[in-house]
Amino acid sequence: MKKLIAALLLIALLLPAAALADGVVNVYNWFDYIDESVLEQFEEETGIHVNYMNFTTNEDMLVMVEANPGAIDVVFPSEYCVQRLLNKGLLMELDFSRIPNFSQIAANLLDPSYDPGNAHSVPYMWGTLGILYNKELVDEADVSTWGVLWNEKYKGQVLMMDSIRDGMGLALKYLGYSMNSTDYTQLRAATDLLIQQKTSGMVKSYGLDEFKDKMVAGEAALAVVYSGDAQYAIDLDEEGRLAYAIPEEGSNIWVDCAVIPAAARNVDNAYAFIDFLCRPDVARKNVEEIWYCSVNTGAIELLGEEYASLYVLNPSEDIRARLEYYNDLDATWLTVYNTLWQEVKQAN
């Protein structure tokens, strides 16, 4: 049913573009994830019409891409979905001679575990998972470890992320394991730790999007958040009480990438569009619009001091070395993670 709806929606979206069959590129991006003037600029410079479509979750995007081969030329999945699409053989191997601006991509994002050698994907934006804390309530030395979320000093003051991978992941990291662990003993230990955290009353609430506003309102001392939300909250907090830290044990790094589906029809235009996005002046516009971490060294240079001073978006080399991508788990381990997380949610 979902596929049927997706197909109908796509047909409806594509109808106006059908008249311009040749000079078209069909782009499928996250909602609110680009500076729209960039699209007009691309059309002016190249004469290629951009047919721009949005999605709000990776899962929606996957259904759409799989159900409509050939309908999309450029799509922006998160790293674990790049891996999933790759495993299904749905991605085109990239010819880098046609993306000269690829050289702008920051070195720490190259050759990732989800797509060796970046053979199929070009990073677009990235970010980290960390702790947003209130400097008036929390000792800065304490947030150097994930253990702060188990620290009795902050009992009842912790906002935990209600997300399977992030919740299990940070407990695994705290124990010194990989966030992608596929060792039942390790996962069991992480689960027990999370249950102990919950039953001992450390956690104030489990949630997601509302954390940034709660922290600004002073409702809690610590919250597990993504870097983009942290920057948003820090900007919003006029009293300057909030700060962001990535614990020393390491954390998660996520990357949203531009990829070309194997079945894409307008391959030349897709290359032109991706290369255009990698151009420093264009990448700069997009960063200024959405304020996520930029992948583009040229753009970072153009953005200058002000951007470089944002430590939330620019973790040090030392921290970067300790960040880990999420692997796309297979059905077995997905079941294990899901089941264990349910046990945490039910514990009392």
Binding site: D162, I164, V203, S205, Y206, N338, Q342, K345, N348
Partner: peptide, 25 residues
């Protein structure tokens, strides 16, 4: 339970929702 209970306690409706939407099972 999620909004006023802070996700500490789940009810059967939450569980069913998680099976369909989060776990895709």
């Amino acid at each position: 339970p999620r909004v006023l209970g802070g996700g500490h306690t789940q009810m059967f409706g939450d569980l069913i929702e998680a099976k369909f939407l989060t776990e895709g099972n």
